[in-house]
Amino acid sequence: MTLNQSLENPPAPGNQVCKTAAALIIGDEILSGRTADTNLNTIARFLAALGIDLLEARTVGDREDQIIDALNALRHAHDYVFTTGGIGPTHDDITADCVARAFGLGIEEHPEALAILERRYGDELNAARRRMARIPDGGVLIANPVTDAPGFQVDNVFVMAGVPKIMTAMLEDVAPRLRTGAVVHARTLRVTGVGEGAVAATLSEAAKASRDLSFGSYPFGAGTQGEIGTNLVVRGRDAAAVEAAIAALSERLTAEGVAVALQPA
């Protein structure tokens, strides 16, 4: 299953056990504000389409102890961990070494990874580029169809590039390795003319009545001269239950004189 296939053709609901995931975004450039991270959004959408719940995300700098501590915490708490950044050819690309230390593994040049780089660079394969062939012992390569230099998987940890185009392409090789679950369905009511405080009590009552669903409020227009309102979102793995809840919420708010519009699914 490719990334586009996973987003366009999610798995059918079934009796799959729900899997959870975490993302670890690595790089001083993210924390400094020099680079805007978009990988987290891509990973979240990718996993949602597969019925895997992304429950946690952390961002750390290029500091060994910080990476190792975060990785160990996340890999023990979730079924899958996805890291981005720190697997390039420069001195501050230390993710592979940190993963090896976290798992208590050795690290050396992976024959297949080295062969890939030799084909890519030929006589220009210098010592810096060879660093990208260093993989923790037992690691399984993740294909990189953009620049060839592979990522890798160790146990439940998937280590990918930080460049968004490359990371997204790597997800296509990751998708078939994951156990999927029932997809989360979502419907949205757009409330206009009032702030979210005006509908908070009604939303809270709806949430109490359907505890197996998730109810969220996402305001817009506050403090501006334009339209004010909030988007009320109902999420759940039972599509029929989501539809019933959003219909009941819409009916209740309309009866209270609140302007609502059900958004396209």
Rank of each mutant, 00 (worst) to 15 (best):
T2I: 15
L7K: 02
N9G: 09
N9L: 06
P10M: 03
A12L: 06
P13A: 01
N15F: 05
Q16E: 02
Q16P: 01
L24E: 12
I26Y: 09
G27W: 13
G27A: 09
D28T: 00
D28M: 01
I30L: 08
S32K: 05
G33A: 05
D37L: 12
T38G: 10
T38D: 12
N39P: 02
I43K: 09
A44R: 13
F46P: 03
A49Q: 07
L50M: 04
G51L: 01
I52D: 08
D53C: 06
L55K: 15
V60F: 00
D65E: 10
D65W: 09
A70N: 04
L74G: 11
A77R: 11
A77F: 07
Y80P: 08
V81Y: 06
F82T: 10
T83P: 07
T84K: 05
D93P: 03
I94L: 02
C98Q: 14
V99E: 04
V99N: 07
G104R: 15
G106H: 15
E112V: 02
A113M: 00
L114W: 00
A115W: 11
L117W: 01
R120A: 06
R120K: 08
R120W: 02
R120H: 04
R120N: 03
G122V: 13
A127D: 01
A128N: 02
A128F: 00
R129T: 04
M132Q: 00
M132L: 00
I135A: 00
P136L: 10
I142L: 05
A143T: 06
T147V: 06
D148M: 11
D148A: 04
A149C: 00
G151V: 03
Q153D: 09
V154P: 06
V154F: 11
N156P: 05
F158Y: 05
M160D: 04
M160I: 05
M160W: 04
A161S: 10
T168Q: 12
L171M: 06
L171G: 12
E172T: 14
E172D: 15
E172L: 14
T180R: 10
G181F: 02
A182H: 07
A182E: 09
V191T: 03
T192I: 14
G195P: 08
A198W: 13
V199E: 09
V199M: 08
L203W: 09
L203P: 08
L203I: 10
S204R: 14
S204I: 15
S204L: 11
E205K: 15
A206Y: 01
A206D: 02
A207C: 13
L213K: 05
S214I: 15
F215A: 02
S217G: 09
Y218A: 15
Y218H: 06
Y218W: 13
Y218L: 13
T224G: 12
T224L: 08
Q225E: 14
E227S: 03
G229V: 08
T230N: 07
L232K: 03
R237S: 07
D238Y: 03
D238S: 06
A239G: 13
A239D: 12
A241K: 02
E243S: 08
A244D: 08
A245P: 02
L249K: 03
L249A: 11
R252E: 10
R252C: 05
T254M: 05
E256M: 13
E256I: 02
A259M: 04
A259H: 11
V260R: 03
A261H: 00
A261Q: 00
A265T: 06
